[in-house]
């Protein structure tokens, strides 16, 4: 199964929409609750990163029997130093974004904690591709 949602840079009123849709689909697929929680945290943080930092982007979600792979691709400033971006508390968010309670430097660490696999590829002044993989345990299943 493949899903795709556009994510608008700078538009916080829509932040979380894609994650909410992904959550609905996972519930319909009877993915176990603990796994859904990990997926939701990862997807929301990746979505908000695009809203907070990029001009525009999209997520492509591929779900099969054993895993979900979410690819967040954006056009934006890119990340000059990925290792530094992964450090808890480090943030380049604007004061406006911080005032809303975002930009505390916890997004990428949250993803790292909840994902089975996290890959970040970025080119400065072009954009970033964040690939998150989480393995599924089907409810009542094998």
């Amino acid at each position: 199964m493949q899903l795709q949602y556009d994510i608008e840079g700078g538009n916080f009123t829509k932040a979380g929409f894609a994650s909410s849709e992904i959550k609905k689909v996972l519930k319909q697929l009877n993915v176990d609750a603990a796994t859904i929680k990990r997926i939701v945290v990862s997807s929301y943080e990746a979505e908000v990163n695009i809203v907070a930092h990029a001009y525009k982007g999209a997520v492509t979600v591929v779900i099969d029997h054993e895993k979900i792979v979410m690819q967040y691709q954006d056009e934006g400033p890119g990340i000059p130093d990925i290792e530094q971006a992964m450090v808890a508390g480090y943030s380049t968010a604007s004061p406006e974004v911080r005032e809303m309670g975002f930009g505390a430097g916890m997004g990428l660490p949250n993803i790292h904690k909840n994902a089975d696999d996290l890959l970040i590829e970025s080119e400065v002044n072009k954009g970033t591709l964040v690939t998150i993989t989480i393995y599924l345990k089907q409810e009542g299943g094998q």
Partner: peptide
């Protein structure tokens, strides 16, 4: 318990 009053609060409350 929070002092944040914008829409994203509900997005998080719902997702969590």
């Amino acid at each position: 318990v929070t002092l944040q009053t914008h829409r994203n609060v509900m997005a998080i409350a719902s997702l969590k």
